[in-house]
Design a protein around this nucleic acid. Structure first.
Lengths: 214, 214
DNA sequence: ACCTGAACACCGTTCAAGT
DNA sequence: ACCTGAACACCGTTCAAGT
């Protein structure tokens, strides 16, 4: 019936007639990320991923329970990248108030630059409540960068002394909201308006969470 | 090959051997909404929708170009309901500052109560940039309820005189962010924590957008 | 106009079999 | 251990044909 792979000379990345050599698991995640960035989440098929790697379409099941497990790995990879970019923005910005703004910008930029990847992380494809521990930990680590930055600001007397997690959830909701609106096309010019909005938001946040009369 | 529908006595809602009577289009949207609320977006199949209505699985194509057009209609219905609930909160709250908080709570409650419906509205299933005019208009109308409320607050001298649309986008991003975090399971106890967070956010927003020294 | 039924070109997943 | 290929039970969509 299906003639996939039996038709004509099709392009191969690796040697066509050998088992996959090294770390297939990693290769699968990378290929999935690439496919998602190009064709969106709904454009991801396990068959195409296997084919791109020169591997049977069921080879994947040696490494992942099912498609949603592969998506969970993609999400985890996304949280890792996001965390690294947040840390980078915080440290390059000098760990002060401007660094805090830079983190917000970096967050939204990550989402706008990798919209489909971002959707896998937050679009309900994986349920955070039921997610595997690795994913939860990676998501938690990204969140913690924000909490740490807030605590530092509190210690410098720049931010009111509310419970840091609650404060962090509030900030997170804002940057997350801006990011979602941007990639959903609810803002007119995706990149520019998102940048405007997040900078405006940063100003408003500062009045909202700062020490009164400071 | 496929034996769907040719097997045994299956339950029907309407008379089994007649054309669908009235407004099939409306019935399709309603059934889609119901299915989505019960089984999520990924659980929606055109075949099941048709079957539930006692209609062929291709009858739908008389009223919608394809599945995504049906989803757009579902999204539109969602924006309509959301708008009505926002207006209700604003008016029942007395159109003052407390009414403004009530709107935020109503927004998040809508999302938490109808998570799948909310995802259809914002989850990338329909592209807002390319959406049909009806959908864009309905979404715009919901947004405008917020803008109007902000302008009223500005006229009462309770909110700083920034450009109302920008101010509204900022608020929208916050409530949208809280709503998304809640239905994504990123908050521990979905309902209670979302309620807490949105009330905390309302306090912080008030300091952030209020007139300084007022 | 509106609906039907068969057919088409896809999916994810399972499983016995190969190396 | 790791991979394959056929098979299964689904999808959305098209289209000639019916009323």
């Amino acid at each position: 019936m299906a003639m996939i792979g039996s038709r004509a000379p099709r392009p191969r990345r690796k040697r066509p007639d050998r088992y996959h050599h090294g770390d297939l698991r990693r290769a699968l995640v990378q290929e999935a990320v690439r496919t998602i960035q190009r064709h969106g989440v709904e454009g991801l098929t396990l068959r195409a991923v296997g084919q791109a790697l020169g591997v049977s379409r069921t080879a994947l099941y040696r490494h992942f329970a099912d498609k949603s497990a592969l998506l969970a790995a993609v999400a985890r990879e996304g949280f890792r990248t996001l965390r690294l970019e947040l840390v980078d923005a915080w440290e390059r910005g000098g760990r002060g108030p401007e660094a805090f703004d830079a983190m917000s910008v970096a967050y939204v930029r990550f989402a706008v630059t990798h919209p489909s990847h971002y959707r896998v992380m937050f679009g309900g494809f994986v349920d955070a409540r039921a997610a595997d521990p690795d994913l939860r930990e990676e998501a938690g680590a990204a969140f913690h960068v924000l909490v740490d930055a807030l605590v530092a600001q509190q210690q410098n007397g720049l931010v009111r002394g509310d419970e840091p997690s609650q404060l962090a959830r509030f900030i997170w909701a804002i940057v997350h909201g801006v990011a979602m609106l941007a990639i959903d096309g609810q803002l007119q010019r995706q990149d520019a308006d998102a940048e405007d909005l997040i900078r405006y938001a940063a100003d408003r946040i500062r009045s909202g969470i700062g020490i009164p009369g400071h």
